[in-house]
Simulated scan of single mutants.
Amino acid sequence: MVYAGLSSSNRSSDSSVGILGLLAYLGAAVVLMVVDHRGDWLSEVRRQAGSVVAPLYWVASSPVRLATTGYEQFASRQRLNEENAQLRENLLVANARLYRLEAVANENQRLRELLGGTRGYQLDVQLASILDIDLDPFRHRVVLDQGARQGVNVGQAMIDAGGLAGQVTDVQPHRSTALLITDPDHAVPVQVVRSGLRLIAYGTGRSDVIEVRNIPQSGDIEAGDVLVTSGIGGGFPAGFPVGTITSLRPDATQTFLEADARPASAAARSGEVLLVSTSELVDSAVAVAGPPREGDDHVEAEDDEDSGP
């Protein structure tokens, strides 16, 4: 019983001491607040205390800042990957469009060159695409995608951007075959632009060489001369480039000269050609006589004087 009484008195004294201590702390806090409010004496203490406590705040906030930084880095990386993929797709699309535009530009350039080959002539021309090329040493032929249904006729001249390429030899309803001027069985009447000398050019079976035979020793021809169609025979319109003389040599009999020429056309490397109808020439005399030679105007003037009264 005595033990229980002592315990109650001790607990009461401890409670009184605790209340008195709390009141003392509250009083001290009130005094300090009043003094600080009136004299601002504790500002330096607060600044020093803030400097001491700042690292603790930085350490305490580190997990949040690390989490935020990691999320931003992940989001930025993901956004960059998405933008990179989008830019790569746009680049592929742009490249595809660029290649398409380049192909169209090349096709337009080829067509301009083809049409430019008929400049100065009023001819009936027809565009045809090459489907197949046969460059066997004994057969230089091409297959065209135009036939009798499209108005193609046997004997039509075939030209490309460089000049005369060959002649149509076989016509089917929707296809036709043309013989190239380099074929060993092909021959075309030509004329030297510089001198007006008329000759015959033959195919050799080589795609880079045609041959001119039976040239008189006194013939005015030399390396570098340009050969054009003469129009003789009516098979080919006059004035289309055929080739350029590259070399001259005596023939086996030493009586005539022979010449090698580089073909002006490149049908074996072209995709399109033009078929020319000789019946549509405006002045048929031009097709027969060929391009005028130097001095022809003087000869014509003399003929007019002789025929006058």
Rank of each mutant, 00 (worst) to 15 (best):
A4K: 09
S7V: 04
S12F: 11
S16M: 08
S16L: 10
V17L: 06
V17W: 03
G21T: 03
L22D: 00
L26W: 07
A28N: 05
V30H: 04
V34I: 14
V35Y: 09
R38T: 15
L42R: 06
V45M: 11
A49Y: 00
A49C: 02
A49K: 02
G50W: 01
S51H: 05
V52C: 03
V53D: 00
Y57K: 01
W58E: 10
S62Q: 11
V64L: 13
Y71E: 08
Y71N: 09
Q73L: 15
Q73C: 15
A75C: 03
R77D: 13
L80N: 14
E82S: 14
E82Y: 11
N84S: 14
A85P: 00
Y99D: 10
Y99H: 11
A105D: 12
E113A: 11
L114E: 02
G117M: 08
G117D: 01
T118G: 00
R119A: 03
Y121F: 12
Q122T: 06
L127R: 07
S129Q: 13
L131N: 12
P137W: 05
F138P: 01
H140P: 12
V154S: 09
M158P: 04
I159K: 02
D160V: 14
D170M: 14
H174S: 03
S176E: 10
A178S: 12
T182G: 09
T182I: 06
T182V: 11
D183N: 15
P184A: 12
H186A: 15
A187P: 00
V188A: 06
Q191W: 04
V192C: 03
S195L: 01
R198K: 14
A201G: 12
A201V: 13
R213K: 15
I215Y: 04
Q217W: 07
G219N: 07
I221H: 05
A223L: 08
G224T: 09
V226Y: 02
L227W: 00
V228Q: 02
T229R: 06
T229D: 03
I232H: 07
F236R: 05
V242G: 04
G243K: 09
T253Q: 10
T253F: 08
F256L: 11
R262A: 15
S265P: 10
V273H: 07
V273I: 15
L275S: 06
L275P: 07
E280A: 15
V282H: 01
G295F: 00
E302G: 04
E302H: 06
E305I: 14
G308T: 13
G308F: 12
